[in-house]
Design a protein around this nucleic acid. Sequence first.
DNA 1: TTGAAAGCGCTAACAT
DNA 2: ATGTTAGCGCTTTCAA
Lengths: 352, 352
Amino acid sequence: MSIMPLRMAEIVSKATIRDVARTAGVSVGSVSRALNGGKNVSVRVARDVAAAAEKLGYQPDFQARSLRTRTTGMVGCLVSDVANPLYASIVQAAEARLREAGLLMVVANTANDPARERAMVAAFRGRRLDGMLVAPGSDENDRAWRELAAGGAPVVILDRDVPHEEDRPWPAVLVDHREGARTATRYLIGLGHRRIALLTPGARMRPGRERIAGFKAAFAEADIDPTGALVCLQESSMDFAQGDALALLRRSQRPTAIIALGTRILAGALRAARDLGLSVPRDLSVISVGDTDLAAVHTPAITALRWSLEDVGRAAAELLLQRLRGTGEGQSRALLPVDLVLRESCVPPTAK
Amino acid sequence: MSIMPLRMAEIVSKATIRDVARTAGVSVGSVSRALNGGKNVSVRVARDVAAAAEKLGYQPDFQARSLRTRTTGMVGCLVSDVANPLYASIVQAAEARLREAGLLMVVANTANDPARERAMVAAFRGRRLDGMLVAPGSDENDRAWRELAAGGAPVVILDRDVPHEEDRPWPAVLVDHREGARTATRYLIGLGHRRIALLTPGARMRPGRERIAGFKAAFAEADIDPTGALVCLQESSMDFAQGDALALLRRSQRPTAIIALGTRILAGALRAARDLGLSVPRDLSVISVGDTDLAAVHTPAITALRWSLEDVGRAAAELLLQRLRGTGEGQSRALLPVDLVLRESCVPPTAK
DNA sequence: TTGAAAGCGCTAACAT
DNA sequence: ATGTTAGCGCTTTCAA
C-alpha cells in the first residue's frame, strides 16, 4: 500500500552494548559498568558512554540481562478474574506499588479452574518471574501450590488460606472478614433483630468461611436464640440470588434483616424485596458486605462493610518487595481491618 | 496444618537442556528439536527425550529461548486504570484470548499521565514484548506514539484516535459511540423531549467526542431547535457530577431528559434528582451510557446504551494475534456496535 | 580502572 | 536424522 518513511526502519534497528562500546571507544565491560553500578568507572568513560548511548538511542535488552542475572524484573499476579471489581482494585494498587519499584506485572485469570491455575504457575515459573501474587480459586489445589513453593520465587497469598508446611505459613495479606461480619451482626442484634439471614456465595474460600464464623460468633456472644441465624449458601449470580432471596422472604417467619455478600447478591436481594413490596428499611434491614457504588447510591443508601482493596494490593506488593530484596524476613502476614459504614438501610424491626 | 515433603528443595534445582540431553543420551540439538518442532526426530529419540525431561522435571527457560528467537511470548497492555470496570473487562477478555494463544499479558496503569505512558512504552520495548494493546489517556502524546511505532512491535489501539502517518491508521478496535449517542438522543426526541442534557466527562478522547457528535447529529437530523441540546462537560467524579447536575436541574428551563456518561455521573445525576424531589421518569427521563449494575438494578431500571467490553478485548487480542502471526494484513480496524437497552427510565415529558 | 573472555540456556545453521 | 557449534546481548570474573 503506501510507503512509510524509511527513517523508521533505522530507528527500529536496536543498538547493542557493543555498538555503544565501539562508539565510545571503550570495552563492553566498561559500558556495562558505566550504565549499571557506576562502580569502578572513570568520569571520562562514564561521560563517553553516556554520550554514545544517548546518540545511538541505546536501550538495554532486559531479556539478555535476565539470562545472566536470573531476574526478570517481572512479577506474576494470579486471580480468578480481573474484571471482578474486587480483584481489579487489588491488581491496580499492587501494580502501582510494583511499578514504583521498577517491576512489571503479568496478570492471568484462572476462572477458579485448578488446571488453569497449575498451567499459569508453570508458565510463570518458565518465564522465571521474580515473584507472584496469588489469590487461589480454592484452597485445595495441592499440586499447584506445591509447584508454587517448588518454584523458589517468593509468593504472597491474597486473602486465602493455602495449606502450608508446619509452622511455615505462606506470606499473605488477609482481611479481617470475621471481625467485620461479627460487628455487622452485633449491630443488627443490637437494633433488636433476631432473625437475620447471611446470604453468601459459599464457604469454600477464606472470606466466606470467616464471615460465617463471625456471624455465628455474634449470635453466640449475645446469648440469644441462635436459630434465627440463617446462613444461606448460593451461587453468586444475581438471578440466583434474587430467586433465593425471594424464597427466603416469602417464609412465614421471614428474616427481618439481611446481610448480603457482594454486589450481585445485594442487587438480587433488593430486587426480591421490591418484588414482594417490602420496604427497606421499614420491613427489612439490609447490610452490604463490600461497599459498592450500588450500596452507596441506592435509595435508601445501604449500610455496608468496607475494607480497603487498595490496601490489600499495596500491602501485598510491599510484602513481596521485601522478600525480593531479602530485607527483613520480618512481618510476613498482614491482617487488614473492616469497617461498618452506617447509612440508612438498618432500623429496629417493626413489632410483629 | 498439613505437612509438605522436604524434597521440595531438590525440585527447585532447575534442569537445563544439557542435563536432559545427557540423561537421554542424545545431543542438545536433538532435545531442542524433539521438544519443539518435532521435525526431524526419530521416535526413539523423541521417546527418550520425553522420558528424560519428565524424569528431571525439565522446564525450558523462556528467557534463554527469547534471547535466540527474539520473541517473548508476552504482550503488554497499557490502560489508564485497570480498576475502572470499563478497562477491567477489556483486559479480562483480551487476556483470555491471548492465553489461549499461549501468550502472557503484562499490564500497566498510566493514570493518563503522558510521562508514565512514555515510560511504560519504553519498559515494554526494553522487555521486548511481542506486541501491545494500548488505550492512551489522551490522543496527544506524540513522543510516546512515535516511540511506539518505532518499537517495531505490533500495536492495537483501544477505542482511541491516535495521530498516524498518512493513510496508515493504527490497527484499532473502536466502539460506535457516535451511532449509540445518536440512537439514544433520537429516541428521546421521538418521545417528545426537546431539552436534553448530555453529561459527559469531556471531549478530550474519542468516546466523548463521538458521543457529542452523535448527540448533535440527532438534533440536526430531527430538524428541531437545537438550543435544547445541552452538552455539559465535567469531571467524572460523582461529587462533581452531582453538583453540576443539581445546578442543571435547578434551571428555570431545566432539561426534561438527561444522558449520563458512566456510573459515577449516572449516580450523581440520580442523587441530584432525588435531592430536588424530581421523580424518574415522571419528571426526568434518564439514559445511562454504559450498562452498569447500577443502571440495571436501580428502581426504576435505567434505560442504557450498551456495548460489549468483552468483544472489545477479544477483538483487540485477535487483531494483535493476526499481526503477530503475520497472517493476512486484512482487516485492521474493527467497529463495534452499541445497543440501546430499553427499560423504565424514559417517558414522554409531562406537558408544561 | 580497564579489557578480554567465559558463559547464562537456548535455537538454528551447518556438517555429518 | 543427528551431533557440533556459533552465537543471541548481557554481566562478571579474571588479568593486566
